[in-house]
Amino acid sequence: MMNDIWILLTASLVAINAALLGCFLLLRKMALVGDAISHAVLPGIVVAYYFSGDKTSLLLLIGATLTGVVASLMIDFLTKKAKIQGDASIGITYTLLFAVGMILISTWLKGNVDIDMDCVLYGEIGLINLDKIIIDGNLYIGPMAFYTELFAFFCIGLTLVLGFKGFKLLAFNEDYARGLGINTTRWHYVLMTLVSLTTVVSFEVVGAVLVVGFLIIPAATAQLISKKLNRMMFLAAIFGIAAVVIGYALAIWLNVNITGAMVSVSGIIFMMVLIIDKFFRKQQVSKSLNPA
């Protein structure tokens, strides 16, 4: 029972972190850049792990986060300098970096249990309790993953609260922001660094491939029914947590993959909100057409 609660708490933090950043990615029409970054941190994680031998070291955190930023630099380079169209630049970048990561895993980390192909796909959310933090020899205060997520949450929360105006302006009207003399490139890379950080700390929990479901789906669900940015962020976090809780319950009940279930539920919530929202809109329209 205690284990379940820690898993749910950790996964909820993953969902909140990803959903908050996902809102800005979505509004800046960079949803797939988020996808690319999450795939691209893989080689960084593998290299850092190979040299540090530890999945939770600071070296790994910094090294892998930088790889994500490199990915977004590479996308910009391919679009602006090599003049390859945007969508293809994203595709080339993420497939290349992910392939490098896979090759490193199959050569350097052959037979390793900490980072294998399954972990890359969907993480090891069920096993996070193996890496416990125990104080004074017997006081168990939760899994390591929870605290790395909490750390990321504070980083993201603080940056978004302090820089709310800047990120909002950047998302709505970048040219206008530059006209005010704001260094939009700097703001852009702060956001990319945060996205990268989130995918790195979430790697162990939900893997590198499925994390994109946490980034995009709850934010998109919230976007369907939000008229204000802060409300959209709040709702995105709620939808994210709902998917985590329902998905986990379903996975345990049906004995299926936990992360897969969470993201599937997230997608189902999206479709339900879409359909209900459409239904209500139709009713409103017909009401205004034939007032009783």
Binding site: A31, D35, V212, N257, G260, A261, M262, S266
Partner: peptide, 14 residues
């Protein structure tokens, strides 16, 4: 694309 991709892939993992 991101929504459809991750949902269906996740379902495949399930």
């Amino acid at each position: 694309i991101g929504i459809v991709l991750s949902t269906l892939f996740a379902f495949g993992i399930v």
